[in-house]
């Protein structure tokens, strides 16, 4: 069951990763290999088995609703590739 080029394009679009035409061949081949391997799961009978999301049956602890002093935006934003006036900058967002 090989992935079709339009399927690779769909995945790349969802994941927001540019995939060039040259990359597409090898990528498809390797993704196919991985997906073929994981399809072994289909042979396992899992009828009535509750999915397991976390290995331990732990439950969420709740945090008291208190405000802590935050780090300054200058500190937290110092890795920003582009910022001005306390804002992160990106190419114009269209709605």
């Amino acid at each position: 069951m090989a992935l079709q080029p339009d399927e690779i394009a769909r995945l790349a679009r969802l994941a927001h990763i540019q995939v060039t035409a040259e990359e597409c061949g090898t990528l498809t081949e390797r993704l196919d290999a991985v997906l073929d391997m994981v399809r072994q799961l289909q042979a396992c009978d899992t009828a009535g088995v509750e999915p397991l999301a976390h290995p331990l049956d732990a439950v969420q602890e709740l945090r008291p609703d208190a405000v802590a002093d935050a780090e300054s935006p200058e500190t937290l934003m110092r890795n920003a590739p582009a910022a001005a006036a306390g804002l992160f900058l990106v190419p114009r967002v269209l709605d």
């Binding site: 609703d65 208190a66 405000v67 802590a68 935050a70 935006p73 937290l76 934003m77 306390g86």
Partner: peptide, 24 residues
């Protein structure tokens, strides 16, 4: 109308300068 955010302890406040109510 909580004091802090849903998943962090940063303050929920209007009208603050940009990004001062945003924690890591």
């Amino acid at each position: 109308a909580t004091r802090s955010k849903l998943f962090s302890d940063a303050a929920v406040e209007f009208g603050q300068p940009p990004n001062v109510c945003a924690s890591a």
